[in-house]
Amino acid sequence: MLKPRTLLLAAAALLPATPGLATRKAGEPAAVRFSPPVAAATLPASPLARLAPGADPKVLDLAQAAMQCAQASGVGASARRLAVIDYSRPSLLPRLWVFDLTAGKLLYEEVVAHGQGSGDNLATRFSNRDGSHQSSLGLFVTADTYTGKNGYSLRMQGLEPGVNDAAMARAIVMHGAPYVDAAQGKRMGRLGRSWGCPAVRNAVAKPMIDLLKGGQFVFSYYPDQAWLARSALLNCPAARRQHDALVHHDTAARPASG
Rank of each mutant, 00 (worst) to 15 (best):
G20Q: 06
L21H: 15
L21K: 15
L21W: 05
L21C: 01
T23Q: 10
T23I: 08
T23Y: 10
R24L: 14
K25H: 10
K25D: 10
K25P: 04
A26F: 14
A26K: 15
A26N: 08
G27Q: 01
E28A: 12
E28I: 06
E28Q: 15
E28S: 09
P29Y: 01
P29M: 04
P29K: 01
P29N: 01
A30P: 02
A30R: 13
A30M: 04
A31D: 07
A31G: 10
A31E: 08
A31T: 07
V32T: 13
R33I: 08
R33C: 03
R33G: 02
F34Y: 13
F34L: 12
S35R: 06
S35M: 05
P36S: 06
P36E: 02
P37F: 03
P37C: 03
P37M: 07
P37A: 11
P37T: 05
V38W: 09
V38E: 08
A39G: 04
A39Q: 11
A40D: 01
A40W: 00
A41L: 14
A41Y: 03
A41H: 11
L43Y: 09
L43N: 11
L43K: 12
L43G: 08
P44W: 09
A45S: 14
P47E: 09
P47M: 12
L48Y: 00
A49E: 06
A49H: 12
L51D: 04
L51C: 11
A52S: 07
A52M: 02
A52T: 01
P53H: 11
P53L: 11
G54Y: 11
A55S: 14
D56R: 11
D56S: 05
D56K: 03
P57Y: 00
P57Q: 01
K58L: 13
K58H: 13
K58V: 14
K58W: 11
K58E: 13
V59A: 07
V59C: 04
L60Q: 04
L60A: 10
L60R: 00
L60N: 01
L60F: 01
D61Y: 14
D61F: 10
L62Q: 14
L62D: 09
A63E: 04
A63L: 12
A63C: 00
A63Y: 02
A65Q: 15
A66V: 02
A66H: 12
M67K: 11
M67P: 09
Q68K: 12
Q68C: 12
Q68M: 09
C69K: 07
C69T: 15
C69Y: 12
C69G: 14
C69H: 12
A70S: 14
Q71L: 09
A72V: 06
A72C: 01
A72Q: 07
S73A: 14
S73G: 10
G74S: 06
G74N: 03
V75C: 06
V75A: 08
V75N: 05
G76Y: 05
G76I: 04
G76M: 11
G76A: 06
